[in-house]
Write a protein that binds this DNA or RNA. Structure first.
Lengths: 236, 236
DNA sequence: GCTCGTTTTTGAGCTATCGCAAACACCCTG
DNA sequence: CAGGGTGTTTGCGATAGCTCAAAAACGAGC
């Protein structure tokens, strides 16, 4: 098994407060796995046998209702952990993870977690921190869904994606992985039709440039304005 | 300062894996504070000086938008922690906490957290667990808001409240603290008007009995049926 | 028992957004 | 370069739920 270079991951929040030699020990328990674009990494409801640290690529975590409707829980960027079912004491994954790009992740057996935490308490503290942050973001999302209209929510979603995974271009910011209107709909609690209409509108106004699974924010500031517009302060 | 009886809190998840003598040490750092009904425990945006463990009563955690709209993040029941800003590395409270009943909480200075975690690593692990569970619940809530209609969401919300804080009566389950239509609206992402209409309807059908800040589920099973009804399987 | 403030109820019209349907554009493959 | 599949656009109703408005019920304090 290829050895993982500690220098690549030492700076990640997960490993804050972990000594270099300890880090090596931790990494010895992991293996590195490649997931081709559009492949499933794990399925909602499956046995949580592993947990993950994304090295390259992007992963979409989605939750499905009994009747088949989906929402996107989040997009995972390199350096982030996912599939932490064990940390919350769940035996099964609460969501499905799909690689949206060719991706590489470090993967540990779930069974290693208790031992690791015991030996390296910072791991628990660090994970608590990131899970806490996600909880906050989650609450913010609920707040938005409760108080804002669809257009504002889409604006916020795009701005977040741009901040998280934006590639700076001369003429704007491009979201760095394939993402469809459907995906955005599932992030904002609306339908792909509505998202499509909104993006069409924005394209007219020169705010964005978009195509098949591709979005470029041409005027990020303009979108910020939209995002913060109060419900009624409508334009002409 | 009154000493806290360890036997009252020893069984709580937060203290799982903590030895009795250690528990005493932990409790020595806390004090017990009483909050009268409707008083604020902390305000969103304020310096996170303390974290809390609710002993008696009920607390509503709510988040407010810049423009003043509110959502209810959750209701805290006895035995649960709240105000854990420090665990997620936040210097300020992300929400406001209000005692909805006369309440009593143990309160620790935020500054004690790092020391406690260092001495008693189970605290971090346990807290990770509860925060993780809350994250899951939060995702479930987002899923509901995205895929269900208001009536179903209200049904789910009431069922959760009943499970969490329901007092069993002969003729149903009563929610054990004062809660208004407005509160329920803020839990489900709708308006108090809509909630009022829905509850009126249910009352007609004998599903609930309700009054000023008071709700009794007369037919919990009937409400479960409503909660699970698919979008279109409408009644006559 | 009366008054005041809060909560709840109910009506009526409005609209943002959905749902359905059809046409279209694009990309990949053979 | 033609064919097929997936993603996107757009039109046109339908409607769940919102907003505004007003009245009624309730509870607490004097």
């Amino acid at each position: 098994m290829a050895k993982v270079d500690t220098s690549l991951v030492a700076h990640l929040p997960l490993f804050g407060g972990v000594k270099p030699e300890d880090l090596e020990e931790i990494l010895r328990e992991a293996r590195s796995v490649r997931y081709p674009k559009n492949s499933a990494i794990f399925e909602q409801g499956a046995d949580a046998q592993s947990f993950f640290l994304l090295l390259h690529g992007h992963v979409r975590a989605a939750k499905t209702t009994p009747s088949g409707e989906q929402i996107v829980v989040r997009y995972v960027s390199p350096g982030e952990t996912f599939g932490l079912a064990m940390a919350i004491g769940a035996a099964r994954y609460p969501a499905t993870a799909i690689a949206v790009d060719d991706s590489v992740a470090l993967i540990w057996p779930t069974s290693a977690w208790p031992r690791l935490v015991e030996r390296f308490p910072s791991l628990a503290a660090n994970t608590l921190q990131t899970v806490g942050t996600r909880l906050q973001e989650s609450h913010t999302r609920i707040l938005e869904m409760s108080t804002q209209q669809v257009e504002q929510r889409v604006a916020h979603a795009l701005l977040r994606l741009a901040k998280q995974s934006g590639k700076k271009l001369d003429h704007g910011i491009e979201i760095d992985f394939p993402i469809s209107r459907q995906d955005i709909a599932q992030m904002t609690g609306t339908t792909l039709h509505t998202v499509s209409r909104i993006l069409s509108g924005w394209e007219q106004q020169g705010l964005v440039e978009s195509g098949r699974q591709r979005i470029i924010l041409r005027d990020p500031h303009g979108i910020v304005v939209l995002a913060e517009r109060s419900p009624d302060s409508g334009a002409a």
